[in-house]
Design a protein around this nucleic acid. Structure first.
Lengths: 207, 207
DNA sequence: GTCTATAATATGATAGAC
DNA sequence: GTCTATCATATTATAGAC
């Protein structure tokens, strides 16, 4: 069949509409998963959020799991990208400064910038195993950013175990903030400074 | 009615049976909530775990919420009690040593001793608001243990904000461990030592 | 105290009209 | 692309027999 201008145009418009709807669903899902959790988010409620009916979601996603996987995948990839960019811009800084930069960017992204990131952090432990499996590689990739940062920070003498445990301390302190951080009361910058002081032995002045 | 020995005995036995069953349900619920989460734990599955049918649970608890509240309440109260006891036994130690003791006891209880504690930590953020409300006071009480420990550790110069943020760093590092700790690979003692080094500026030797 | 049976409702998902 | 209608199933909770 020979496409004339009209049918070609309609094809484009339809594709744009589909992509727009898909993006809106993903954004609403991220916000909702962050707020209530994965199991607690019903597809009916999600659909209502984007002025749709539940069944319509299946035109864009094959299942709730696929939708959630996509939301959380966007989250990790986004935070890895923004942290890596920040570190590339600070390639000449000291290991301590680079670690500090990563801490700040991670916190800002998690707490102020992206529901995709925060929904990932909150929901990952309770999402079906099949979803976690899908996210294994992207998560591992972001983990490696921190492994390298902490290795550089601790220097060549540090054991793998020390690197591992310090990473868990940091990740715990960073990600735990989604549960208590209140933008009206708390400051990302102040919390980041607390972590930096701890890392650089400035927590207690007299020591 | 005048109770003879037999009816009195049966009364006691029934009461014991009820209390035993109730305790078994609570224990199984704690284990299950820890493993799969609150929403993900169905009362049918829970009942099966204690060789019962779902309906029978309602002889012991008025609702799923009440059951979950009880599980989580036992958790906080248990960890507060064991941490407070440990601190009482170390009343003469330095603030840094007392903080270190609390870190160790908290981790041991959370990771090795009590499903009531770990289920509380994992499920609290996703439990219905009504349940969280019921737990507010006991949680606040345990929080105060840490506020005091950190105040003493930082000394009189510390601002409330610093105390608050250091507490969140610690709680995040401590409680985040439920998500990654593997008894076959990890050591509570080694992880506790990592945290202690960070607190006492011994993380990096050359500084 | 625990059972069976069931109410009342909510869920993820699919089929077919438009 | 989205709707309506519905399937199949799962959920919390209750009523009444034993």
């Amino acid at each position: 069949m020979n496409m004339n201008e009209e049918t070609a145009t309609r094809g484009v418009r339809q594709r744009v509409k589909a992509e727009t709807a898909r993006a809106e669903i993903l954004t609403a899902a991220a916000r909702m998963m962050r707020r209530v959790g994965y199991s607690e988010m019903s597809l009916r409620d999600l659909a209502a959020e984007v002025n749709m009916k539940a069944g319509s979601l299946y035109y864009h996603f094959a299942s709730k799991d696929e939708l959630a996987t996509e939301v959380m995948r966007i989250g990790v990839e986004a935070i890895e990208a923004v942290v890596r960019r920040g570190l590339d811009d600070a390639a000449d800084r000291s290991p301590a400064e680079r670690l500090s930069i990563a801490v700040r960017i991670h916190l800002e992204t998690l707490l102020e910038k992206s529901d995709f990131v925060s929904s990932h952090i909150r929901c990952y432990p309770f999402v079906p195993e099949a979803v976690r499996e899908q996210l294994r590689d992207v998560r591992r990739s972001y983990d490696q950013v921190w492994v390298q940062l902490i290795r550089d920070f601790l220097g060549p003498g540090a054991t793998n175990e020390t690197v591992r445990y310090l990473r868990f301390v940091l990740i715990g302190a960073l990600n735990g903030s989604v549960e208590w951080f209140n933008p009206n009361r708390d400051s990302v910058s102040d919390y980041a400074r607390t972590i930096e002081k701890l890392l650089t032995s400035q927590m207690i002045a007299s020591r």
